[in-house]
Design a protein around this nucleic acid. Structure first.
Lengths: 151, 151
DNA sequence: CGCTAACAGTTGATTTTGTAACCAACAAGG
DNA sequence: CCTTGTTGGTTACAAAATCAACTGTTAGCG
């Protein structure tokens, strides 16, 4: 009963990662939200299309590990706001290829610049090699146990 | 227009942190969810009480940076499931001191053991010094720009 | 072909979160 | 004391995430 409790929540990696993720997303989130009325999933979809060009909803979901209903709704909202268009594939009419409109491109470029600055500011707190190591470790944590429910 | 797009989303720190956080929380989440029907905020509240003993809702929120409505609801659910009890402070009757019940203690100890194992497994992927550095960097990212809306 | 299974994506019902307004209780000054 | 402001915590309503079931389309195979 008098057992010493030495568990340190602040050191628990999942907790720590969540706190860091939340904190580090905050300022960026406010920008895409205020400037374009976007949600988290929406800027992610926007960036995927901006970076990789034309993709289908499924491809975006697979790359970003976002559930398809989330992608579906994000795409619907982005389309409604004229940030992207859909084209039904002629070869496979189930698939829809998504593309940014000029407006979507513009928003993407704007936010990309913000993201670059923002990232630079975050990383500036650390020596370059440490920052590089951090990214490597995070990528590893993010992709481990890859063999998850793709069902 | 033919501008090369060299932005790498996978390197964008907030994105990377979110992916790592989500991935690394997954297995642990499934355990507290399946074993005790808890939500994210609930295990956090449970752990705070388990570690620090008796606290008020406000104190938990401040430490964990959880909004008070979220804490309020988590506490209500934990109370309904008999994981904790409230006692109104005699000195200040607005405040309620929260304490784990025996059942809450048991759940906490169980999950604490799970968390320890789980953390060890995650960290095992890296050399000890790197893991320590990772935690240090994450703590820094998590607590920077501390001067946020306490309003 | 015609049947069944799988796949891309959407929709609806339920749960969870977020935002704001709210209710006590206290604190401090007049 | 009584007003005004603040604090601890809850509640109501809207926005969003989750989960399951659904539509339409293609693929495989007897």
């Amino acid at each position: 009963m008098d057992e010493k409790d030495d568990f340190d929540l602040q050191e628990f990696l999942p907790y720590l990662l969540n706190q860091a993720a939340e904190e580090s997303s905050l300022a960026f989130q406010q920008i895409y939200k205020r400037r374009y009325g976007m949600l988290r999933t929406e800027w992610r979809v926007l960036f995927h299309l901006g970076i990789y060009g034309a993709l289908t909803a499924g491809e975006i979901g697979a790359r970003a590990r976002i559930h398809k209903t989330k992608v579906s709704r994000a795409v619907a909202r982005l389309e409604a706001r004229r940030f992207l268009t859909r084209t039904t594939d002629t070869a496979d009419r189930r698939r829809e290829t998504l593309r940014l409109t000029a407006q979507g491109e513009a928003a993407y470029r704007d936010l990309r610049a913000v993201a670059r600055d923002y990232d630079a500011r975050l990383v500036a707190e650390f020596p370059a090699e440490e920052a590089a190591l951090l990214r490597r470790m995070l990528r590893r944590l993010a992709t481990s146990e890859e063999a998850r429910d793709t069902a």
